[in-house]
Amino acid sequence: MLMIPKFKAAHKLRKPSGRYAVGCIHLMFEYTQKEKDEKKRLIPCLCFYPANQVDEGTLKKYVSEQILPGTEGIETNSYLNAPISEGKHPLLLFNHGYSVYLEANTVQCEELASHGYIVLSIGHQGEGSYELPNGEVITMDKDMQADFLVDFSNDKELFPNYATWLTKEGTDATFEQHYTKYKEMMDSQPRILAHMDVWLQDCLVALEMLLNPTEQGANLVSNHIDKDKIGAFGMSYGGAAALGLTHSCDLIKASANLDGFYYNSKWSKPFSKPTLMMQHDSMQVGPHLTFPFLNAEHDSYLVTVKQSTHNNFTDYTDIMAENEIQKIVIDEKEVEFKVLGDIDPDKMQTIMNTLLLDFFNKYIHGSDSRYLDTDDSLDDVILLRK
């Protein structure tokens, strides 16, 4: 969950490095969660894709002012409804962080699209804010958010205590000790795990409907998807969803997590598909992806980005006008921390874009890795391989 800072008055998002122009369309799917439900659940989506060269067209506004006030001066690189590039393209499912919006990692979505990937950013009704294809804006459901947060209010010291253990005893702990500590975390978060089950169902429905479209808008991209090359990535809670999809969907070949604590009812099940896990190095949560990394049975990479915070893994790195200070209470003491870490914003975006592209090129496209498996490491990165 993210606070709302001050944004740059006039700013163009980082230019993608790939050879394709970037197209973008709004999509919306819906389904009935239970047989007797009268009301359908909406799945708002935003699809980025490799487009034909665009001489002129309408650039998508970054995000609706109703969703994120103060962003009217921010311009994307995505052309609305641009013609998609011919041929088949790999597909990546993206999930945003809890309580935010489809555009929260536009920089990464545009970068991947410019290199030939179709990226479907998936929304979750009631747990984010979204602009629908007809221009209507839907926002957070307060009751759903309260239900999600009940576990946090029951144990406010949970994360600080776990972070302290990870950075002290956890550095030399056995796998069994990590397992025990992680089980304590998961056992204390039943409502959050239940919400994750719904997010995963949203993803599976959205994927099915995109691959077998019934609406005209989805046809624009569905016929260009290479169904043998599908992956997933996400940020924060959405990063946990991306990892979870490796267990719940055979079509997903590889998943990447941008700083998301791994909430999942199947948290103890080892990963049998390639995973990339990236985390910050501040004490907000600690090295929280250690256990999921240790629990991987397939190729896995654990990346710690020095001088970063949780918010650095979103577009906030690119669009904030200035860093800000937040206050939290740890062990009954008020602690101040910066919203963004001290890492250079351009370097942070380079790290995320480069490693995501390198990872998916290897495990979705079948190309050789340029960074993850070589000694050409990036600055301010600690990389562990498994």
Rank of each mutant, 00 (worst) to 15 (best):
Y20M: 04
I122E: 06
M140L: 14
L207D: 06
R385H: 10
D376Q: 14
T164A: 14
I330N: 06
L357K: 15
G126D: 02
L245R: 04
N134Q: 11
W267R: 00
M277E: 09
K229D: 03
K338P: 06
K253V: 02
W267E: 01
L2H: 04
D379M: 05
H224V: 12
I325K: 08
L355I: 05
G260P: 02
P274I: 15
D197T: 15
A146N: 10
D155G: 13
A104Y: 02
V100P: 00
S308A: 08
W199T: 09
K168P: 04
K273M: 00
S272Q: 14
K306Q: 12
P160A: 03
S265L: 05
S99H: 13
Y301K: 03
I382V: 12
S248H: 12
A10W: 07
L383Q: 04
H124Y: 15
Y62A: 01
H224L: 09
D172I: 13
E184S: 04
H288Y: 05
V107A: 11
L245D: 06
P44V: 12
Q108E: 10
G341P: 08
L27K: 04
Y363T: 06
E56W: 12
N223V: 09
S153C: 01
K8M: 10
T275A: 12
N361K: 13
M283Y: 12
I138H: 01
D368T: 15
E111T: 09
V329R: 15
T167V: 07
Y62K: 07
T167S: 12
I4S: 00
E72G: 02
H178Y: 15
D281Q: 14
D226A: 14
F159M: 15
I252P: 10
A21I: 00
Y262M: 04
D228S: 01
L132G: 11
E208G: 00
I343S: 02
N312F: 11
I325T: 14
S300C: 11
A254N: 07
N134V: 10
M186R: 07
T304L: 09
Q349E: 13
L383A: 09
Y98N: 12
L42M: 13
N361V: 05
A206C: 09
F360Y: 08
M320W: 05
N295Y: 05
I122F: 11
L46V: 09
S114C: 10
K60L: 15
G70S: 01
A242R: 06
I4D: 00
M209I: 01
L207Y: 07
Q189S: 12
E65V: 01
I328W: 09
F261E: 00
P44E: 06
F175E: 09
T354V: 13
F233D: 08
N311T: 05
T374V: 07
P292I: 09
P270N: 06
